[in-house]
Design a protein around this nucleic acid. Structure first.
Lengths: 240, 240
DNA sequence: TGTTATTGTAACAGTTTGTTACAATAATAC
DNA sequence: GTATTATTGTAACAAACTGTTACAATAACA
């Protein structure tokens, strides 16, 4: 393995074979719900940021570190949502292509062509505060709107689908607050985020009352950058 | 490997290394919420029913078949809820003991002593309609009330804890109906099950109205085996 | 035939949710 | 300045839902 280009070693002995992880990183730009997708050098292959588990680290450690390396984003709060273990979820041809186009020896990395079971995680991050950086294996890392995804490798589309489903289910419990919006936001932005995630629409007044009733919001100063109308308040999430 | 005693082979080449699964099988006997626990021959080791994934079967197939083999129960609807990958979750000493007490060669089965990541599933079954049978490796398979569990191997107590948490969260959505109660049951039995699972108590009248309002119940004939009082109706779950 | 315990419902109050209405404004146009 | 315009924050009312109490309708048994 070319350790100049790839400081992270991929020696078979260092890793647990057959085990991978993948991540679905959600961001909201105020209008659309987006996720981060990697494109591999000269392959036209698109994939979720993922990686492998070293023998001497826990799954959780591997995922946190691995996803941060591959996306260039720190302080991710990743939540495990499902493990994928279908027989359809290996594509040795694609993996060969990725190795080849990165100048890596296929024989030496043969274990990567084998069957993998993947533990999938998702995270919500504030679109405006991050600057994703592709890792050496990948050409680019880009935000894609959920309805404009490129065709993804293997079962990665299924993983995205399931991630969104889980996000919808957990929306009210705890999550949205964490990271998806800027630190301060208007009620309208909050409603937009909810609507994009759930795919539903809400009545403005009922939504506002419901949100305020949760007692999870703190009201701040008004936001005066708007148009010819009453200025909205800014809110932030109360830390519990 | 002694294939006389153990018709299921455990040859390293047949399985995906480092990958295991475990199952939490819930049953309700009308009074207590219970789970199935295996005890290994002559070891005093208690564990959840689990197994490994063959190279030529999907994770889901392996789990369904594996759990049915180890418990003697057919037609389980298993739901994946979390994957456990901590560094604390191997106990090669215990595994050696299990192999030894079953007359299995430790050297030949060395891969079983290595680190495993385990995908955990749970199932709800009708206590009265099953007759669990231990597999050859285990001495016994028994129902244990959740508050009277024996000490479990490795991180299996954590797995049980998380399974119960998931069960509680999903209770209203879809699950309870599936299998936890007999085909026909009284409102009181339903309420008992809910209370044991959630750990809460409910007012009889409000509970009854809430359940009937879901439109998921079909009312049948009355049950006359009771005491000196008005006979309750029997209900069953509507298949959606 | 009365007694007893439990069940199925109704009635009322209190709470939450859906909808409509309207006053309070920021920016802009005059 | 003053009127105009779009949007926001709330209040008001109705409808739906929940919690609680009350009570009639029983099965079994004495």
């Amino acid at each position: 393995m070319n350790t100049d280009k790839h400081p992270q070693s991929l020696n078979k002995e260092d890793y647990l074979s057959h085990i991978a992880f993948d991540s679905v990183i959600f961001g909201f730009n105020g209008k659309d719900l987006k996720i981060l997708i990697l494109e591999y050098h000269n392959t036209g292959l698109f994939a979720l940021p993922g990686g492998f588990v070293r023998r001497n680290e826990s799954l959780a450690e591997a995922v946190t570190k691995g996803v941060e390396e591959r996306t260039g984003i720190d302080d991710l709060y990743l939540e495990q949502f499902q493990t994928f273990g279908g027989l359809n979820r290996s594509d040795s041809k694609a993996m060969e292509q990725i190795l080849e186009m990165n100048g890596l020896d296929i024989k030496a990395n043969e274990w990567l062509l084998d069957r993998f079971i993947s533990i999938a995680y998702y995270a919500l991050i504030n679109f405006e505060e991050v600057n994703p950086i592709p890792d050496p294996l990948a050409d680019s890392i880009e935000w894609y709107s959920l309805d404009e995804l490129p065709p993804l490798m293997m079962d990665h589309e299924e993983i995205v689908h399931k991630a969104l489903e889980t996000l919808r289910e957990n929306l009210d419990k705890k999550l949205l607050g964490m990271n998806l919006l800027p630190a301060k936001f208007t009620m309208k932005e909050l409603q937009n985020a909810y609507e994009k995630i759930t795919g539903e629409t809400f009545k403005r007044t009922a939504f506002q009352r419901r949100m305020l009733a949760t007692k999870n919001l703190v009201r701040h100063e008004k936001l005066f950058t708007g148009g010819a109308h009453r200025a909205p308040y800014l809110y932030s999430f109360k830390i519990k």
